[in-house]
Each structure stands twice: as C-alpha cells, then as structure tokens.
C-alpha cells in the first residue's frame, strides 16, 4: 500500500492550484523515494514536472511502485475541502481504484476522509536530459508574476533576454511596446528579494505569455523562481518546494520561421 502524511497540507493544495488548469489528467508516480509527476499540457507546448520527496513527509510508506491516475480538477475539488492548516494524508491500496485524502485539523478535533476514483492513464514520459544552461536567473517569484501579468496586457509573446547585467522581458502589440529589465541585485536585505544572474553566454528567446502566466500560479509555493535558458531549448521555470522537492515547468520557445 501507499501512504503519505504531509504536516503542511497547504503545500499540496498550492501544487494543485498551480497545475490544474494546465494539465487535465496525470499519473502520480509513487515509489519509496516519494511522489513524482510528469505531464504535458493538451497542446504539447509545456511540460510539468513535480517531485515531492519521501523525506518531506511526516510519514511515508510505499510498498510497491504505483501510478495513481488522477483528474486534477477532481483532486482540486477534494483538496479545497481541506483547511489551510490541516494535515493531509494520501492513501491508496496496491490493487485499488481509489485514493483517500484524510484531513486532520491542527488540534485533531476534526478528521475528514474523502475518497476519490482513480482512472487509467497511458502516460507518455519524456526524458529530460541534464543540460548546462547558458543562463540561470533567480528572482523574486512575485516580481516574475507581476512582469508576466503586466506584459500579457500588451502582447501575446515575450522575448526573454539574459546578459551579465540582468534579465529583460520585452513584448509588443497593437497598442505599443514594453521592455522591463531586472538587474542583478545581491545587496538587498532579504535573500528572497535578490535577483542573481549566472551566465555562460547571453541568450534571447521568445515565449508565449499565456503559458508563462499560467506557470505563475505556483508563486505561492516559493518566494523565489529560477529561470534557466539556453538557445533553442525550452525554458525551465522552477519553484523549489521547501524540504520536499520542486515544481518545474518547461515551455517550448517560439521558433523563427
């Protein structure tokens, strides 16, 4: 059987909110090392990769590898019934066709069990090679969210450029143009307000703002976001999940015609 008890249940709620509009159905791959998920959006432009390590759970048991086929909208409906401070336990039998979500209130005076039907999903896993990216930028996640939202009101695509001075986001549309530059900034008080640029080669790529906007639904998971770029490769937008792992989004660039 599989069982995972997560003291900070709100993390799971936030993960679902971040991916439920991008991916419809996906397998949660459970093994003794944790829970992993890889899924593409329906148009095969973006890919989501989630890792929740066993060590981040208060209790974790997985007797044999299980692929739990889940409709994310339905799972989100179930998790919305959990309080933000609730402890969430996931449970599934090896041969079962359901998953149980147990919610415990912080002072243990309310225990709820929600049972959800699983589905059979033929998953297509893609191999993501280890890549030395030409540019890696870490910046406040709220700042990235704001920039992407602001640019979306002006254009459909954004050119993201990284030089050793910083990262720039540019767009254009019927009403005009916009260009935002965030410079490397490591002498701020709080580490989470820093913008750091690690660069081997300047890089500039064009992406659909609609997808970048969707990724920023993960902002609540982490105060910082890491953007990794290389010429002619998908951008990686990574939100680290404290003590547990990460939520990564890969987005294919626009290609010159």
């Amino acid at each position: 059987m599989f069982e995972g008890r997560l003291l900070q249940g709100s993390l799971l709620k936030k993960v679902l909110e971040a991916i439920k509009d991008l991916v419809t159905d996906t397998n949660f791959d459970c093994s003794e090392t944790g829970i992993a998920l890889q899924a593409m959006d329906s148009s095969h432009v973006a890919l989501v990769s989630l890792l929740l390590k066993d060590t981040g759970f208060d209790h974790f048991r997985c007797d044999r590898n299980l692929a739990l086929g889940i409709n994310l909208q339905n799972m989100s409906k179930m998790l919305k019934c959990a309080g933000n401070d609730d402890i969430i336990t996931l449970k599934a039998e090896d041969e079962g066709d359901t998953i149980t979500f147990m919610f415990e209130s912080p002072n243990q005076d309310k225990i709820s069990d929600f049972e959800m039907k699983l589905m059979d999903i033929d998953s297509e896993h893609l191999g993501i090679p280890d890549t030395d990216y030409q540019a890696i930028v870490t910046m406040p996640s709220a700042e990235f969210q704001r920039i992407v939202r602001d640019l979306s009101s002006i254009g459909d695509t954004a050119v993201i450029g990284v030089t050793k001075e910083g990262i720039s986001f540019s767009t254009g549309g019927d009403i005009g143009k916009a260009n935002i530059v965030c410079r490397q900034n490591t002498n701020v008080d709080k580490e989470e307000d820093q913008t750091t640029v690690e660069i081997h080669e300047p890089v500039s790529l064009t992406f659909a703002l609609r997808y970048l906007n969707s990724f920023t639904k993960a902002t609540a998971l982490s105060p910082q976001v890491t953007l990794s770029l290389s010429k002619e490769l998908p951008i990686v937008v990574e939100y680290k999940i404290e003590k547990m792992g990460f939520l990564r989004f890969y987005l294919a660039p626009k290609i010159e015609e």
Binding site: H125, L126, A252, P253
Partner: peptide, 14 residues
C-alpha cells in the same frame, strides 16, 4: 513572431 515549438520535439519519449 515565429511558430510555437512542440515540447516533444525537444525531449525524446522514454
């Protein structure tokens, strides 16, 4: 603006 790339053309199926 360019054509939208497909993620499967960058990462091979396992």
């Amino acid at each position: 603006k360019g054509a939208q790339g497909n993620i499967m053309s960058f990462f091979k199926k396992k």
